[in-house]
Amino acid sequence: MDEAPLVEFKDLVVSYGPVQALSGVSGAFPAGPTGLLGPNGAGKTTLLKTLLGFLEPDRGMINAFGLDPTKRPLDVRRRIGYMPEVDCHLPGMTAAAFVAFAGELSGLPRDEAISRAHEVLYYVGLGEARYRTVDTYSTGMKQRVKLAQALVHDPDLLLLDEPTNGLDPAGRDEMLALIRDISERRQMSLILCSHLLRDVEHVCESVIVFNQGRVAASGRIADLTGPRRAVYDVRVKGDPTAFLTDLKDHGCEWREGEDGYRVIMSDGFGPELIFRTARESGVQVRYLRPGAETLEDVFLRALGEEVTR
């Protein structure tokens, strides 16, 4: 799937009145699954709005499938399937009618929309329940019907906004498996907007991290979390203040973990630095386990760098 990017944006500035939501961001969503991460107010939603042609940039360019969404929003939108975070259904409508209706709105002929609605509902696991009104569905079923309405017109790019919201662990795994299948077997590109890093890690190959209207990090997850820097989970006995300060002085990063500290070593250093620093700071290392840098580490580091920038 190493093709030209589906979506590109360059030096993009978007404002709401005096507030700049995107401050000259540049980046690209390649074909395949890409995660879009960032805290609230980071600019993710603004980027999606601009991509769908709802907002006009103050400066810079954005294009999707080689089209400018500000000039040809309908042509862009018909190639995008959007699964919103919030509930969306038409009261009193069965799932089959609702999904077929969504297909028609996307430009499918009526017969084709009906036929595809049934197929897609089977695909997302609602085949048996497709003649029930969506109002009577459980949260998990509503999430699936939202996915079905986004898929019905066979978009080139799927925008999934928090697709596992409100799902129990089993439902969440099923939804992620479905999304993976869409991406891997159906060769559909997708942008997964989520605050659950595990979901993004599970599905996506690349990620773009937004913070404060800027791109804080972007690239392939494998490259971002690769074995470039050693990571250790450490537990110490005694006052850790001096120990942690000394580690920082040596260029290491640390953050509090579940039961101790996660230390990301600076380049070229190994566990001996931890032992030496502990000895010099007067604390006792009670636990030390090598770990791998996760997407969460990348995310938090990116946010930290943005904050200190």
């Binding site: 309908l74 042509d75 509930d87 709105l105 430009g107």
Partner: peptide, 13 residues
């Protein structure tokens, strides 16, 4: 019900 999302994210003005 959020159905307005179904409309406005489609190729509709």
């Amino acid at each position: 019900t959020g159905a307005i999302l179904v409309y406005l994210s489609r190729p509709l003005t």
